[in-house]
């Protein structure tokens, strides 16, 4: 029996009068790759932000890795993010004036102690051993996304969150990134939550849930 890494009950998020996420009950077993699909404004990014400790719910309960996120202070959530979560953004969000290796070391710095050799190794794992000293502006979109993946995995997170990580990539780069994530997950055994509106990308997961207007309307288990 695999234990649950994420448990939500009646999880809700309101922004003023707008209910971005209506009460959701969700259990994600440890090690699962969960794809979250839905149209724009369906609440999928909101769900990911709540699970990643980037936002606070309006109602309901939310436990991730045994931590009650509602009980954590601002600094407690920051600690949770650096120790437990790795995030891959659609827009990469790399610090423009730092090199690829320094961008990876940034996550190490906030987590514990920067280790350049380890950061280099992480970039080599994502196939960027030859681009260590390049700044984001000197990298292609796919390469930037791989730096973002290296930064997300450098602290060995239990939970990897992807917010449309291939949204800005062409098909070839998308496949490359997804294969890389699959390999890394096999090695690191982390849980993946991938927000996407691309059915092809969602199909890389074990299970897909569908959100519509903040409501979990359907879920689908992928055939292995």
């Amino acid at each position: 029996m695999v234990s649950a890494i994420i448990e939500t009950s009646g999880l809700t998020r309101n922004y003023g009068d707008i209910c971005a996420l209506k009460p959701i009950d969700l259990i994600v077993p440890e090690g699962e790759w969960l794809s979250v699909m839905g149209h724009s404004g369906s609440g999928k990014s909101t769900l990911m932000n709540l699970v990643g400790g980037l936002d606070r719910p309006s109602n309901g309960s939310l436990r991730v890795g045994g931590e009650d996120l509602l009980a954590l202070s601002e600094d407690g959530l920051a600690r949770f993010r650096r120790e437990f979560v790795g995030i891959i953004f659609q827009q990469h969000h790399l610090v423009p004036y730092l090199t690829a290796v320094e961008n990876v070391m940034l996550a190490q710095y906030f987590h514990s102690v920067p280790d350049e050799a380890e950061a280099r190794s992480a970039l080599e794992r994502v196939g960027l051993g030859h681009r260590l000293k390049n700044r984001p502006g000197e990298l292609s979109g796919g390469e930037q996304q791989r730096v973002c993946i290296a930064r997300a995995i450098i602290n060995s997170p239990k939970l990897l969150l992807g917010d449309e990580p291939t949204g800005n990539l062409d098909h070839k780069s998308t496949v490359m990134v997804m294969e890389l994530l699959k390999e890394l997950r096999a090695e690191e055994r982390f849980t993946v939550i991938m927000v996407t509106h691309n059915q092809e990308v969602a199909a890389w997961g074990d299970r897909t849930i569908y959100l519509d207007d903040g409501v979990l309307v359907r879920e689908e288990r992928m055939k292995s």
């Binding site: 920051a78 600690r79 993010r81 650096r82 995030i87 969000h93 790399l94 906030f110």
Partner: peptide, 16 residues
């Protein structure tokens, strides 16, 4: 602000 937001997203606390 994007740089600061990113630092916070990857786990920087107020002291850092």
């Amino acid at each position: 602000s994007p740089e600061i937001a990113l630092m916070k997203a990857v786990g920087a606390d107020r002291l850092q």
